[in-house]
């Protein structure tokens, strides 16, 4: 038997959240955590969680599994279980709508802020904007993000300033477009991130890298953005001082 301890909250009936433990026979096969949740839901249909693709592509079932954010659908129970117990909590730092379902409005607002689309005002060619293989390679490790919010919700800076700090997920996407050779709004994108909060609240604690279910490295992208902001400032200072002299 294994104990699955789940965070429960129903806004219609509960004043405060609480946890509930379900004992379940340990499955013979090493199934994924989402399957285990599905079995539990047959016992208690009131358990709420998001899920869709069940193969780590949609990013719906992000949750805090034994203290570490991850996707339930690609986390085997053998990996999740600790001392015969699995503790499931909603993603930290975001308002809980019900049980393991969180309100991701703030997360998407930050994603919206970085303008996650290609901006190029030059005349489009007849077929498509081409890239060299080298330029295309620069997007590897950036475009694969599925926006599951595991990284941003494991970041203490995002917990304290979800409205001002863009967060690792959106910053990874910001760098995805900054690094794209076809995008012509690099300067504007960097300008939009140059305030004290958007990027500089990241202190490189690496929790985003630690939890990313797709093994991406938002911390590296943030470091690159910081370096570009710094070299932009240097260039501005040189231009200003040249103008003055």
């Amino acid at each position: 038997m294994i104990d699955v301890n789940i965070y429960r909250y129903n806004p219609e009936t509960d004043k405060f959240p609480y946890t509930q433990t379900y004992s379940i026979k340990k499955p013979e096969k090493d199934i994924m955590l989402l399957e285990l949740l599905n079995i539990l839901k047959e016992q208690d249909s009131s358990i709420s969680y998001r899920r869709s693709c069940r193969e780590g592509v949609c990013g719906s079932d992000g949750m805090n599994i034994n203290g570490k954010n991850g996707l339930a659908c690609i986390t085997p129970i053998s990996q999740a279980i600790k001392k015969n117990k699995i503790e499931l909590r909603p993603l930290p730092g975001l308002p809980v709508i019900r049980d393991l379902v969180v309100d991701m409005t703030e997360f998407y607002a930050q994603y919206d802020k970085i303008k996650p689309f290609l901006q190029n005002e030059t005349e489009p060619p007849a077929q498509e904007r081409l890239q060299t293989p080298e330029d295309r390679d620069k997007l590897d490790g950036l475009y694969e993000c599925i926006l599951c919010a595991c990284c941003s919700t494991s970041c203490p800076s995002f917990w304290w300033n979800p409205d001002k700090f863009v967060g690792p997920a959106a910053l990874l996407q910001a760098y995805r477009f900054i690094a794209d050779s076809r995008d012509t709004k690099t300067a504007e994108r960097l300008e939009g991130l140059s305030d004290p909060f958007s990027v500089y609240r990241c202190h490189g604690i690496m929790n985003c890298v630690n939890v990313c279910p797709k093994d991406l490295n938002p911390n590296h992208a943030i470091g690159e953005i910081k370096s570009m902001l710094l070299s932009n400032k240097k260039k501005e200072n040189i231009i200003v001082s040249d103008g003055a002299s």
Binding site: P11, P17, R89, P90, L91, P92, P95
Partner: peptide, 9 residues
């Protein structure tokens, strides 16, 4: 809405 943050967990 409640927010889950438990630094001990």
């Amino acid at each position: 809405k409640p927010v889950y943050i438990n630094l001990f967990k």
